[in-house]
Every structure is written in C-alpha cells, then in structure tokens.
Computed example of a mutant assay.
Amino acid sequence: MADHYDVLGVERTATPDEIKKAYRRLARELHPDVNSAPDAEERFKAVTHAYDVLSDPGQRQSYDRGPQAGFGGGGGGGGAQGFGGFGDIFETFFGGQQGGQRGPRSRAERGQDALLRVEVDLSEVIFGTHRDLEVDTAILCETCEGSCAQPGTHEVTCDICHGSGQISRTVRSLLGNVMTSSPCGTCRGYGTIIPAPCVTCQGQGRIRARRTIPVDIPAGVDTGLRLQMPSQGEVGPAGGPQGDLYLEVKVRHHDIFSRNGDDLLCTLEVQMWDAVLGTMTTLKALDGDVEVEVKPGIQSSEVLTIKSRGVTKLRGGGRGDLKIGIQVVTPTKLDHKQKELMKQLASAHKYPAPSLGQFQQGLFSKLRDRFMNA
C-alpha cells in the first residue's frame, strides 16, 4: 500500500493546513469529471482515502506509529502506544458508531418544515376563506426524480468501504483489541458513490422552485394561530419525504368591528332625539345588513345583542354574537329655533338641577365592561 504522505505529496511533518491544500489541488486535478486519464479515478480514490486518514488527528497518529499500533488491523505489542484514545473505547462500549446504527446511511432525508404568514380580513374569519399561496421551496428534481444521478447512470458501490459506509479499525487497549468504526470519508457514509451527478440538481435530488399551495383557512381563526399542513413543506434531499407546512395567521385590523372571542363588537352612535323617541336602523355588518331596534329612553353604554351574528366558532360549531354598544350623541350646533324648542322641552319637564354624584367611568370603560358581561 502506498504511503499516504507520498500519495498527497507532502512531508510527514506537514501541517493540517498543508495536507488540506495538497488534497484540494489533487482532487481538482484528478476528479473523473475533469480528468479522463484511465488511472485518474483510482488515483482520485487513493488521494481521498489518504486525506481521510491524515486529516483525522487520531487516525494520523495511529498511522504514523505503524501497523504495530493497530491501525487498520494488526496485532503486535506497543503497550501504552496502542491506545487509540479513550473516546474510541467509550464509543465501542457506550453507544458510539460501533454500538449505534450499522451499515450505510440513506441519502434520502426528511425535508425541512416551512413557516408562512398569511393575513386575512376580519370578514373572512366569519366563514373561513381560501388562499392560493405562492412559495419558493424545494421540490423534487424532475430530471433525476430524486435519484441524484444523471439519467442513464446510477450510483455504484464505494470500493473503499465496500458498501458498508463505515471504515473499521482495531485498537489495542488494556481491555484487549477494540474494534471502532467511523463514516467512510469517500462516500460520506452512504456506502455508494454517484459517478455522474444530475446536472439539474447538482446531485441533490431536489431543486428550488416556485409552487402554488392551495390553502383552506377555517372559520374562527385568530391572530397568532398556527395551522399545520402535513407533507406540504420542503422535499428532502435525494427525494426524501416532505416536511410540514405551518401557516401563522394574522387578522387585519378593522376600523369598525373588533373581536372578543367569537363575538363581534361595535359602537352605534344614536342622536339624542332618537334615543328619546326610539328608532329602527339598519347596520351594515360584516356578513350583511342587520336590523337594529333602538328603544325609547336608551342610555349611552347600553349594549344590544344580536344573536348568532358573530364569528363562526373554530371548534364546536355555531356562531358568536354581535354586540352593539350605544353612544348617545348630544348635539352641539343648534340654530335659534332648535334652541327655543329645547328650552320649551326643558320647561315642560321639571328635570332636577345638576348636582354632584359618585364618579362614573368613561363611556368606553362602561362599554368594555358591558361588552364582557352582555
């Protein structure tokens, strides 16, 4: 077997940086995609294997001590020099590569989950809505269909690890010969190599593209709610299963209506004479017109409740209520005739004079409390 230092063309005292630079130079020179020489592929594999050993401090130390140290198999003495490090021993007995997953790992992995934020109007929350969302995401490569290889080619067994995905070595210790394993640096633990990667996806089995995702947003959602859409996220490497898509909802502010749970809240301004005499009015609600009866003598901060005209409940069915807070508006600009009529009204009814009384909270505070308790 050729000496690894000779293969890379470096001295035995070379620094890790010098070893890396030598490997990169030779890899660019000997890679089968750029070098058609008959022996280029074999030399490329030898260079890669040499770099895998010399770039790992533990393996390089064992290699420098020679076969008697237990590198790549072999017995011999060596006493304390035979230790490959306590890390290898603990890996073997307490769940390292030797005690964990055996064999090559799959190229196909689950794709990442994705998070999108979608804004909806308050009117759309009442009955739910539909969206066609345009997203940039990872999709399956149509050229190789996730195989990562150029059409007409296929992956081949790694001749360094012979398809196992692992490189094993024997280390002598106080406990005897200990077998440890590490991922093969040539195939990166896959057990296979792709000689001709797909040019469309660069051997990834997936590409970035824009796609449309139809989404049905249920009724009753509220700001901050996250909806999970299984298997609508990104396609995984090598055509692996898709991750999940999460939609985070934001309900846009409405100038008239607000929300309290499943109830809709609003304020209706009533002129003083309508409050005194009573009236019928039509309110343009989010889901159509609502007939509202203002009874004679109604007071500011009273709340009228229209049943089942609120938001559809997210769970359990049915709808909340529409709650209308009354605000009686006192006229501020009266002409001479109107003022005389008001004086006549005042003189016809002996209202008590203004007097001190207990402090009353403001209109909006009253409405808030009554909204909550209505």
Rank of each mutant, 00 (worst) to 15 (best):
V47F: 02
S62W: 03
H49S: 05
N35H: 04
F44W: 15
R65G: 11
G76Y: 00
T15M: 14
E29C: 06
G70H: 04
V47I: 10
Q61G: 05
N35V: 07
A50F: 02
H49P: 00
R28K: 14
T15G: 12
F71C: 02
K45H: 02
L30W: 05
L30D: 03
D56S: 15
V34R: 05
A80D: 04
T48N: 02
E42S: 07
G72E: 07
Y51F: 15
L54Q: 11
A80C: 04
L54V: 02
V34I: 12
A46H: 02
R25N: 13
Y63T: 05
T48W: 02
P32S: 11
Y51P: 01
D56T: 01
E29V: 00
R25P: 02
G58F: 00
K21I: 12
K45G: 06
Y51C: 04
Q59T: 01
P67A: 11
E42Q: 06
A37E: 14
A40Y: 03
P16T: 13
R28F: 15
K45V: 12
G79S: 11
G82D: 00
G77W: 08
E41N: 10
E41P: 00
P38K: 06
R65C: 12
V53A: 07
A14Q: 13
K21N: 14
Q81P: 01
F44S: 01
A69M: 05
G72H: 07
L26Q: 11
Y51H: 13
V53C: 10
Q61V: 09
G78M: 12
Q81H: 12
S36V: 11
P16M: 14
G66R: 01
V47M: 06
T48Y: 03
A50S: 15
P67C: 06
P57W: 07
K45E: 06
G74E: 06
G77D: 09
Y51E: 04
R24T: 09
R60W: 04
S55W: 01
G79E: 10
H49R: 01
R28D: 12
L30E: 00
G73F: 08
K21F: 07
R24Q: 15
K21M: 13
G74M: 10
P57S: 11
Y51A: 02
L30M: 06
S36K: 12
P16C: 14
S55M: 07
A80R: 14
G66K: 07
A22V: 04
K20L: 15
Q59S: 13
A27H: 11
F44L: 03
P67K: 08
R60A: 14
T15C: 08
Y51G: 05
F71I: 07
G75D: 10
D56F: 00
S55F: 05
G79L: 13
K45P: 00
E29R: 09
G77L: 13
G76C: 04
V53M: 07
T15R: 15
T13N: 13
Q61R: 10
P38D: 10
H49A: 12
Q61L: 12
A80E: 07
P38S: 02
G75A: 10
K20I: 05
G79I: 09
A50R: 04
P32Q: 08
F44N: 01
A80Y: 11
G58T: 15
T15Q: 13
A50G: 05
D17M: 15
G76H: 04
G82L: 13
K20G: 01
Y63I: 01
K21G: 07
P57C: 10
G78N: 08
P57G: 08
